[in-house]
Design a binder for these strands. Structure first.
Lengths: 207, 207
DNA sequence: TGTACATCAGTGAACGCGCGTTCACTGATGTAC
DNA sequence: TGTACATCAGTGAACGCGCGTTCACTGATGTAC
């Protein structure tokens, strides 16, 4: 016989249901275009219940940004711990990228989509998080051969180039139809070629 | 004494007014979030008049994509005719980029914003146009030293890297507050450093 | 363990509003003679 | 040049709809004794 969940547990479940409903509904038309009532319906609650969890759709959007970037941070921490990444940054990071994006398709889709066009609040939150992410990746890159003698501004630029490519490739993986391993391989291959070109630049760069 | 415009002229003016109204209103919240009635109001016509020019907001969006890419094509044609660009691709193209984007701020803003998040129809139209733009730029790049012996796939990859950087920097110029020449200079400088890094990669690339 | 009361996540009716779209219309421009 | 009719860009009223937000409520969970 199952025990009834505590009030707190139940509230947390509903909150999750609302977050997931919003993420799911955003997929087709973008977060900015979905309504509070649609989210509530999808989450299985009455519209007014929404207000027990968020003051407004904007606040829900910010919560989604936060949740999505948790995923991204996990990804970079994984990369930091993996010795392969330092030995072979291109193949390893392209592979990690495609794998993690596939596992968290909806979070990446959300970030890529809302980055340029969410509400002002959501857009700014994403820009801020992306800057943070670039700085964190710069720490990893700084340990690479050739880059260890660069100025920190230069390392950050390189990090920015990588992240922007990641965002772009993530968009592609997200838009990729399911069950098309050939498309997936092609994207990985293209991402690798681009990163290889950038890394070649690293080797000749002088600040 | 001024002559009354022909019926056709007047219709064209109203059409322009609607296009400009939509472009203007999109700036703050994105095209997908503005309503037919808002556009009509801003254009100075009654909502029903909208239907004399476009079947739906989606069709208006596609017209805006087309208009915006006319600007982009003009830009690349300019670059093709300018001998400086071939001599010194980095400085010249960064300068052309910032100048053209500033002159056509709203068109670039529209493309950058709606690329990831417009309606499906608008999004696909932009992706198609961007692919075309990358191909056209590839023709210019193919004439550069080092690249003239690359495979066409490789040149296209390089072109894609440039265009993606352009789109990104264009987003920044668009979001830049007016009358901040220091910010503008900083963006130009960053774009130049990035392109220089990529060009360094060109020199060592082997397909 | 049992009772009496407090808390509060979720309910359901109601509101005023802007929306996209329809329809019959108006009146200036265009055309045929 | 003048007249009679056709065209058609723009009008204005009306429609049904989903929206965000308010409010008083319900009833299960939590707490004090």
């Amino acid at each position: 016989m199952s025990v009834a969940p505590s009030r707190q547990e139940q509230k947390e479940r509903t909150r999750e249901a609302i977050l997931n409903a919003a993420l799911d509904l955003s997929r087709d038309h973008g977060f900015a275009q979905i309504s509070l009532r649609q989210v509530a319906r999808q989450a299985g609650v009455v519209p007014t219940a929404f207000y027990r969890h968020f003051d407004s759709m904007d606040e829900l959007g910010l919560a989604l940004v936060e949740r999505s970037f948790l995923t991204l941070r996990t990804m970079i921490r994984e990369a930091q711990g993996d010795p392969d990444v330092l030995d072979n940054i291109i193949e390893a990071s392209a592979e990690v990228l495609v794998r993690v994006v596939k596992q968290n398709r909806m979070h990446f889709a959300f970030v890529a989509r809302e980055r340029a066009s969410g509400s002002a609040a959501v857009r700014e939150a994403i820009q801020r998080e992306l800057e943070l992410f670039i700085s964190e990746l710069a720490v990893v890159l700084a340990r690479l051969p050739h880059l260890d003698r660069w100025s920190s501004d230069d390392v950050k630029m390189a990090s920015g180039l990588f992240v922007r490519n990641m965002v772009y490739r993530a968009e592609q993986v997200v838009q990729m139809p399911e069950g098309r391993p050939d498309r997936e391989e092609e994207i990985t291959r293209k991402a690798q070629r681009e990163m290889r070109l950038i890394v070649l630049g690293f080797e000749k760069w002088e600040s």
